[in-house]
Design a protein around this nucleic acid. Structure first.
Ligand SMILES: [Mn+2]
Ligand SMILES: [Mn+2]
Ligand SMILES: [Mn+2]
Ligand SMILES: [Mn+2]
Lengths: 223, 223
DNA sequence: ATATATAATTTGGCTAACCAAATTTTATTA
DNA sequence: TAATAAAATTTGGTTAGCCAAATTATATAT
């Protein structure tokens, strides 16, 4: 009987969740192994165990996918991680750049009740010190309210959520720029003269007028 | 490379420290194994490793003894354990009877700095919720001030430390009752009528007058 | 001093999480 | 399509912490 089954499992779950969220590519065994800095044989073995436990599904094309149960568990680990980070910064005066490794230890403490009390003690923070949202006790990540792209901060990446205008001419223009819900936009600069923005999209740089940017609603995107 | 070397080692250290403190008997392999609910072969193996690491000494008569280094480490684990217990009770509103098992997990978090910040955050508590003193950052256990036996609480066990009277008649009387420094006394009841106490000593029950009890100084004894 | 109980130690084995080095698929690309 | 690259899988092996069952050594009691 192993002593720390959860510790390992939780790290695999988190890794899988992180990789999956990038949705750039399907997550395969090699990618997971690389990300976790482990040997592919090791990872394959563990992934199979987790499949038996119903946490993961191995699709016909060998893609590794979290089941809804697995995803929930992953989010509950992330919840713990982020709550502890808040604790470290808010209560123990750590700076936000120091807390990740400590949270990596604390996230494995096993007690739902403790986690919930910690959350209450911290007065239900919405996000961790890095701005990442904290899943609720059911593992639900309530999506942050979308903001106007004009409010986007220089250097940050945002995901397009919706638009504030339905005119065909507007939508056609967006289509021409390949902007649609889900598109990632990085704010490079706001130009003071006309409030237009320099935006990076798919490695290209485009200019958006104030009027256009003001009708694009986005959310902060964290890698 | 094992992932949790400290976790195991710390539990052995703590067990050894606890057993050693009873000082009833020398700690041998069997006793340690029984206390930890492990097989003697397992314990012997580990104890030898810890001897190599300089944490433990195996005396010629096979007694297992913490080295000063080992004792310090044990006390630092106990420090973490008790600080986390204070945190759980003071900040997360747990009752003192619920916190031990959680602290058993939290005591293994590795970060001296975190421990020290936690201590500061809790405003340097002298004792944990069960009244046990908290070692300082050097693993030094400052002995709690002795209290008058009259202040002893019903049900608690105290160790005799010193006396407030040197008259021969007093000391002779104590001798007759087998009370000397180191003796354990359990307060069963304080009798309101004459402030005398019913005290358990070596499985016998004796009565101590207010005058006698008032000249016995004790300290809380924790098993 | 001998029998007997207790403690210490050895031996052989288990499991979980890991790795390196094949080998076998499965994709890509020419 | 044949050659090649990449991914998946298998095989054999390691280590730490654990156990059961022998064996050997040391006490204890008669
Ligand atoms: Mn983090
Ligand atoms: Mn972790
Ligand atoms: Mn405790
Ligand atoms: Mn412990």
């Amino acid at each position: 009987m192993s002593h720390f089954p959860n510790h390992f499992e939780e790290n695999y779950l988190k890794a899988l969740y992180k990789l999956q969220r990038k949705e750039i590519k399907k997550v395969n065994n090699i990618a997971l192994a690389k990300y976790m800095e482990l040997n592919p044989a090791t990872v394959l073995e563990m992934v199979r165990k987790m499949a038996d436990r119903g946490l993961v599904e191995i699709l016909p094309d060998k893609t590794i996918q979290l089941t809804s149960q697995g995803e929930k568990k992953a989010l509950l680990v992330i919840r713990k991680h982020r709550l502890w980070e808040v604790f470290l910064v808010e209560k123990l005066d750590y700076s936000w750049s120091e807390v990740h490794d400590l949270a990596e230890q604390l996230e494995h403490i096993q007690s739902e009740d403790l986690t919930n009390r910690l959350e209450a003690f911290l007065e239900f923070p919405a996000a961790d010190p890095h701005g990442d949202p904290i899943p609720d006790k059911n593992g639900k990540l309530r999506t942050a309210a979308a903001i106007n792209l004009l409010e986007g901060k220089t250097g940050k990446t945002y995901m397009v959520k919706s638009f504030g205008e339905t005119a065909d001419s507007f939508l056609d223009y967006l289509a021409k720029l390949s902007i649609r819900p889900g598109t990632l936009l990085r704010v490079l600069e706001w130009n003071a003269y006309d409030n237009s923005g320099s935006i990076e999209i798919n490695n290209a740089i485009i200019q958006l007028s104030e009027k256009v940017a003001g009708n694009i609603f986005v959310q902060l995107h964290t890698t």
